[in-house]
Write a protein that binds this DNA or RNA. Structure first.
Length: 413
RNA sequence: GCCGGGGUAGGGUAGCGGUUAUCCUGUAGCCCUGUGGAGGCUACGAUCUGAGUUCGAUUCUCGGUCCCGGCCCCA
């Protein structure tokens, strides 16, 4: 009987894995150069960690289970909450701000479709301890650079929840949430109907529609005409100035609502084309979660990148390793191991373990696309040398092991 | 949770009521025990699953499951 993969999971074959690691390392390079440090949290947590902050619908997608001690656990559906939990548990006395990143798999019980799986990878960044627009801008600029670093042209939208909330502040919390949902979905007719239903004032309606449709260079000015010179707008303006200094391309979009309610101020999203319905590759903003988990009143800003979606559209190609196949005969098999050990100091060496004959080894080298073959035969051993063969041109020379190694490293013959 | 389209060797496919289930590719080996890629030969290897209809199902019907896409959702 054949056992298949669980639904929504994937196997990554060598070629694909190599590409994934390559892309991952590109992004890792970027965050490291920005002074962020990697952390690892557990694959599973107490279920409560994830149910505490989220609303209905969300909890239904958690992979949860009880263990043999009847503890209610859950495979992490995301990493922001675990990171905040970690901060509260053991990093509260660390000098602020903290600049952290992670690259881990997450699990959600959802219907798989393009760019969406039950096990997926998230690359994320969190800064903890600064409520300044400087932190927000840095995080946005970092996200933009990471996306760019893997050759993706993303469409970055930046907004601020404080501004739309200012318009809605007279309404009940529940009504605000509903409105934000419509705004986030860009569902204007649904929004209009809802405003009608709750008897919203004409002013509010006009302001709201105007605000979410603002675009262009003078977005801040336009917003100011609608909501007045409120504090949130000043902060947002400062953020925009810093973003300009980073030389990041973006559009102001007050219609970003980010679905959930724990975001407090700045919010942003990055979209990519060619991804069907799941075109968002990155989302983030500033939030307050630490108090919820029993810590102090510490502001944070962060984002998560959907790594699998990035892989879906990423066109990078990793540099091909110059793999060398060592070909030996029966009587030189043991000598070959010694030579392999020398070469392996800096080139990947493939050694036969099938006791294939000479021809078979060469043929296999050809099949796996080896660039070079190093022949270790009786004749070579007697001369104290090896034969280096270029599989593309067929050219070959007898050289010392050291010379062969240098030729291979330089990629020449 | 809802709506479409699909599942035949490892990969790609043909057959659409009765076949030894087709072909290509792959892998292993031989022809060929110190020189790969071509060719020939041999071996390996498949009807997603369960029920029903039928003398007979890979083929038709229904359920399940998995894949692909869309809706909902998306921390």
């Amino acid at each position: 009987m054949k056992i298949s993969r669980p639904r929504g999971t994937r196997d990554f074959l060598p070629e694909n894995t190599q590409l994934r690691r390559f892309v991952e390392n590109r992004m890792r390079d970027v965050v490291s150069r920005w002074g962020y440090h990697e952390i690892i949290t557990p694959t599973f947590e107490n279920l409560e960690l994830f149910t505490l902050k989220s609303g209905e619908g969300v909890t239904g997608e958690i992979y949860n289970f009880s263990d043999k001690g009847d503890r209610e656990l859950a495979l992490r559906p995301e990493l922001t909450a675990p990171v905040m939990r970690m901060y509260v548990n053991e990093m509260q006395a660390t000098p602020r701000p903290l600049k952290l990143f992670y690259f881990e798999n997450c699990f959600r019980y959802e219907r798989p479709q393009k760019g969406r799986f039950r096990e997926f990878w998230q690359f994320g960044v969190e800064t903890i301890g600064s409520s300044r627009p400087d932190a927000d801008a840095e995080v946005i600029a970092l996200a933009a650079e990471m996306v760019e670093s893997v050759g993706i042209k993303g469409d970055l939208h930046v907004g601020h929840l404080g501004i739309i909330r200012h318009i809605l502040k007279e309404l009940e919390a529940e009504q605000q949430t509903k409105i934000m949902r419509f705004v986030d979905k860009k569902d204007d007719t649904g929004l209009d109907d809802y405003l009608e239903q709750i008897n919203a004032s004409i002013e509010l309606r006009n302001e709201l529609f105007e605000l979410v449709s603002i675009t262009g260079e003078d977005a801040i000015e336009k917003a100011r005409q609608i909501v007045g010179d409120i504090e949130e707008l000043q902060i947002f303006e400062e953020l925009i100035q810093i973003l300009d200094a980073y030389n990041v391309e973006y559009s102001v979009d007050f219609g970003i609502a980010r679905g959930l309610d724990y975001y407090t101020g700045m919010v942003f999203e990055i979209y990519a084309s060619n991804l069907g319905a799941q075109n968002q590759i990155c989302g983030g903003g500033s939030y307050q979660l630490i108090q919820l988990f029993g810590g102090g009143d510490v502001p944070s800003t962060g984002f998560g990148l959907g790594f699998d979606r990035i892989m879906e559209i990423c066109e990078l190609e990793p540099e091909q390793k110059k793999e060398v196949v060592l070909v030996a005969t029966d009587d030189t098999r043991l000598d070959a191991i010694g030579i392999a050990r020398e070469l392996r100091r800096d080139v990947p060496v493939y050694l036969d373990i099938m006791q294939r004959n000479f021809k078979g080894q060469l043929s296999h080298a050809n099949n796996i696309g080896a660039r070079y073959v190093v022949i270790v035969g009786k004749r070579e051993m007697e001369a104290g040398k090896v034969t280096l063969k270029d599989m593309e041109s067929g050219e070959q020379h007898q050289l010392t092991v050291e010379d062969a190694r240098e030729h291979i490293l330089k990629g020449e013959m």
